[in-house]
Amino acid sequence: EAIKTVPATISGDFERFMKWADDRRRLKIRTNADTPRDAAQAVAFGAEGIGLVRTEHMFFEGDKIKAIREMIVAKTDDQMKAALDKLEPMQQKDFEGIYEAMEGRPVTIRYLDPPLHEFVPTNPDDIKELAKEMNIGEDELNQVISNLHEVNPMMGHRGSRLAVSNPGIAKMQTAAVIKAALNVNKAHPEWNIVPEIMLPLIGDLAELKYVKKIVTTTADEIIKEAGSDMKYHVGTMIEVPRAALLADEIAKEAEFFSFGTNDLTQLTFGFSRDDAGKFLPQYYSAKIYENDPFARLDQNGVGKLVEMAANLGRQTRPDIKLGVCGEHGGDPASIHFVDKVGLNYVSCSPYRVPIARLAAAQATIENEK
């Protein structure tokens, strides 16, 4: 919108400048987008795909939050299935909207990542209202919420750990992704959509194999029933340091890696992004750290894990696709580093795409020198 308000000559110069940048950069600028609107905005800014769809953001809208709360308080398999059956078409509709907006460009969909306690209320009045909506006792709901409490939820029951303990969630999300892709592909066969399913917070090959089996069994059945030969890829986020150390093993099952550098930074430094703001200013003034490691990638520590994991992954799977997602994907210095390491794409928020496109071109030129 801002570009439209400036004189045509300046706008034209900007477009020529961005074309110059696009002709020179190696890295693709995928974007983080959770809605069709975000996806369309990213494309308008020149994004070549989506590197991170955070499916949990979809659950907070309208009736979806009610359905996921029904899933959380479910006491029987039938109750769990009923809740998941409500969620599936809602997720499918969201995915269809994103696929439509991206017009055949690659889309990487991350499965449910945050701990379940984020979906339940903490205010007593809200708890009382939810108990009434869910038709359960207030004491019973309080017990459920209490059971969800974790001392350190960032390092607790979240990511693919949810899929191990609740396989129905992964099955539901897989069905929604595949059915959405099939529907949009049917309407637009020229797009040849190939879903990219990303499993978060994996730390072990056996863990990845377990969750991937849930995905592939569900996906293959749906594709077969549709009489389709649609392909899809299953990969993982490298955000647990152990996954970076074992990347050659992880790559046996993962068709792509996306480095979730936000969590990888938290787990490598040993402090959370939410809490670090209380003490990091003192670290800057004492010259212990020069920059906020959540804004600019720590190349010496976290970056070493990224480079090592990329090299190990390529040893096992030479054609593995490698990307980085998170706000580091929009930081010029971080982009310069991941281009040097040889990653294929960076993914950032839609409004940082133009900066990332320019930074990627500058990084390519500089690194080639």
Rank of each mutant, 00 (worst) to 15 (best):
P7N: 10
A8E: 12
A8W: 10
T9F: 15
I10R: 10
G12N: 15
D13F: 13
R16W: 07
F17W: 10
F17H: 10
M18H: 05
A21C: 05
A21R: 04
A21Y: 03
D22K: 15
D23W: 07
R24T: 07
R24Y: 05
R25W: 00
R25I: 01
R26V: 07
L27I: 07
R30I: 07
N32Q: 09
A33I: 05
A33H: 08
T35K: 02
P36G: 01
D38I: 09
A40P: 08
A40S: 14
Q41A: 09
Q41W: 06
V43Y: 13
E48Y: 02
E48M: 03
G49M: 10
G51R: 03
V53D: 03
V53L: 02
R54P: 03
R54K: 07
E56A: 00
E56C: 00
H57M: 14
M58I: 13
M58R: 05
F59Y: 13
F60M: 09
F60Q: 04
E61F: 10
G62W: 11
D63V: 08
K64S: 13
K64V: 08
I65L: 08
A67Y: 15
I68C: 12
R69H: 10
R69M: 06
E70A: 11
M71H: 13
I72C: 03
V73K: 07
V73W: 08
A74R: 06
K75H: 11
K75W: 06
K75T: 13
K75V: 09
T76G: 10
T76F: 08
D77I: 10
Q79S: 09
M80H: 06
A82W: 03
A83G: 01
D85V: 09
D85F: 07
E88T: 15
M90F: 12
Q92I: 03
Q92P: 02
D94Q: 15
F95A: 03
E96Y: 04
A101P: 06
M102L: 07
M102Y: 11
R105G: 03
